[in-house]
Simulated assay, not measured.
Amino acid sequence: MTAASPAQQPDPLLSGPSDDLWPAPFARGAVDATVTVPGSKSVTNRGLILAALAAEPGWLRRPLRSRDTLLMAEGLRALGVGIEEGVGPDGTGEAWRIIPAPLRGHASVDVGNAGTVMRFLPPVAALADGPVRFDGDPRSHERPLHGVIDGLRALGARIEDDGRGALPMTVHGSGGLDGGTVEIDASSSSQFVSALLLSAPRFNQGVEVRHVGATLPSLPHIRMTVDMLRAVGAQVDE
């Protein structure tokens, strides 16, 4: 058997259209266009948490529809929060109406493999009136949650994780948390800090979070959390 020389091998990138290839658009002149940029997953999931913990119903305009944001919405629904998907009050663009309600326990939350869901929802679950079980994709069991778990335990929450510091776990909601000062090692994920801050306005005494580990990663994401908290009226001191 004789192998074909390189010159005889068909080049898949030059051999014509294929169902496996995406034909990139090519501009033959100047482009004048308006592009609607999709929403941010990080902003959408933070907005869902803040709206769910608000005192009255609100709108989340132009959310990003993705697996992670839909998992967050379903997790909040499992806790009793109303989320209606449709068109906003101005009649343009998708919007979700968030209807806060007393947070209920005896619920299960599928986090998929979404870091924001597995880290942002346990502090919310601590405010529910009963146990909330968290689980997700097999890969989610490998992702660290110790910062959130340790922080919530320091604030008085009861959590069963069999010492793994990871999923699956059960948060035993008691209807509220006193809050206060907590020290956590968030060197593996800034989401540990954001998780506690997002629910802090519902803690009786708020929360003061102190990072005690190595370099804190993703500071812009913590800034995003702080800015969104302030935008809805929460007081954040740095």
Rank of each mutant, 00 (worst) to 15 (best):
D135Y: 04
I222F: 05
F134T: 10
E56S: 13
M118K: 06
P217Q: 06
I149K: 12
Q9E: 13
G173P: 01
P138L: 03
G86A: 05
A126Q: 02
F120W: 08
G156I: 01
R28Y: 00
W59K: 05
F134D: 12
D11S: 14
G179Y: 03
N45P: 13
N45D: 14
G91F: 01
R77A: 09
R153W: 00
R67F: 03
G147K: 08
H211L: 10
I99S: 14
G180H: 04
T44S: 05
D129V: 13
A4D: 13
N45M: 15
V111P: 00
Q235Y: 01
P23L: 04
M72N: 04
G105P: 02
D161T: 12
R202S: 13
G80I: 11
L196E: 12
G16T: 13
S187A: 15
L198R: 09
E84Y: 00
V182G: 08
R230E: 06
D110L: 07
A231C: 03
L177C: 06
T34K: 07
H221D: 11
M118V: 05
L196M: 12
R143V: 03
E74S: 05
R28M: 05
E208H: 04
G130V: 10
R143M: 02
R67D: 15
E142L: 10
R61S: 09
G93N: 04
L50Y: 00
G115W: 05
E142V: 02
I184S: 07
M72V: 03
P10Q: 13
L219Q: 15
D90L: 03
L121G: 11
A231F: 00
G112K: 01
T225H: 04
V212Q: 07
D19E: 11
L177A: 05
F120V: 13
A73M: 11
A78G: 08
L76G: 08
G156V: 04
R210H: 10
G180M: 10
M228D: 13
H146G: 01
G16I: 11
V212K: 06
D135S: 15
G80V: 10
L79M: 15
A30D: 11
T215A: 15
A7Y: 07
T69Y: 00
A166L: 02
V182F: 01
M1H: 01
S218Q: 14
T116H: 10
L196Y: 00
N45H: 09
F203I: 02
S66K: 00
A214S: 14
R61G: 01
G233M: 07
R223G: 12
T92C: 02
R119M: 01
V31H: 01
D150T: 14
D161N: 10
L79T: 08
R143N: 02
S18H: 11
A101P: 07
N113Y: 01
L70M: 10
A52H: 01
I83D: 11
V81Y: 05
A200Y: 06
L219K: 15
H221W: 11
T181S: 12
R77F: 09
R223A: 15
G112P: 04
P220G: 11
G88F: 02
E74Q: 05
D32R: 14
R65N: 05
V132L: 03
S18A: 13
V236P: 04
G115M: 09
S218M: 08
